[in-house]
Design a protein around this nucleic acid. Structure first.
Lengths: 154, 154
DNA sequence: CGCCTGAGTCTGTCAATCGAACTCAGGTAT
DNA sequence: ATACCTGAGTTCGATTGACAGACTCAGGCG
């Protein structure tokens, strides 16, 4: 899969500018797991508190998480962090990380099995073209300049 | 999508231990683009040379890339870096990064359009269950302990 | 021998991470 | 009024990684 052209506005690179590092991924993982509070995020990700605070702030600023006020009885109001649709749309990314790890790093099979809620069958991520064909992988894919291509001079 | 159990051997986290940072992703992007040589990798990723060298070495050590000798006429033998199958299996990850960026960060539409080589239609990444149902996203997914689950005590 | 070339490696500076400790800010009890 | 509580940060100094620029390496060739 050689790329005979180059763009200056690569989407991969722009996405990485927001999420391209470990702690952010782990925060997103927890958000998908339903974890919303600072202390729980911290306990489950293991992120140093300063790092976690910075990542949460960044994800809110970028619109992937939103703050929602909550208040435990006897305590003051605080904020939880919830996924937005923009954040939720990173689900394929998290799942592809998981599935690759299941395949190459999990010694005894997948630790977590994602299943279809309605029927219970395992869930997979598959390539498909708009005409309905199964696409097996990068060798069956051709990259073309898209509508937003800003071509890089050779 | 709440997770009512926890594992200590999370595949996402283990994958992130190898690829969870920007430069590694960019190296992989270039590998998928057919770039194989150090100087080309460096030019296209913009990685500092020391960083690039370290990432290439790591990816070779982890089996995602392999070295293959080459020799330009009049020069000495050197090594190129090529994807292994293990590395190629990270294609869904790269594509999900791209598609998310296309949707949320690309102002004028996707810079790069991935198409099916055989028919030309745009390629998408879709969730499907083993029984053939389309799965729309995280809300239709249930996570269960898998065969390799090492459960974390609450 | 010297030159060439691409692939690293080295060095000192800067930035981010890290662990531990500290602060903040509402609610509540005294 | 003050003191305590609690979760969510913030601060601080040490450590680690990134970074730019310069340097080295190692075969081939004249």
């Amino acid at each position: 899969m050689s790329l005979p052209f180059r763009v200056t506005n690569c989407s991969i690179e722009r996405t990485l500018g927001i999420v391209g590092e470990k702690w952010t991924f782990l925060v997103l993982r927890e958000a998908f797991n339903g974890v919303r509070r600072f202390a729980d995020m911290q306990a489950h990700t293991g992120a140093p508190r300063q790092v976690l605070s910075a990542r949460l702030t960044r994800l809110v600023d970028e619109g992937l998480l939103r703050k929602e006020p909550y208040r435990e009885p006897g305590q003051r109001q605080r904020d939880e962090y919830r996924l937005t649709e923009k954040g939720r749309d990173l689900y394929p990314l998290l799942v592809s990380l998981m599935h690759w790890g299941d395949r190459y790093l999990a010694d005894d099979g997948p630790p977590v099995q994602l299943t279809h809620r309605d029927c219970g069958a395992p869930v997979e991520l598959r390539f498909r073209c708009a005409d309905g064909h199964e696409v097996a992988g990068p060798r069956e894919v051709t990259a073309l300049p898209g509508a937003g291509a800003q071509l890089e001079s050779a």
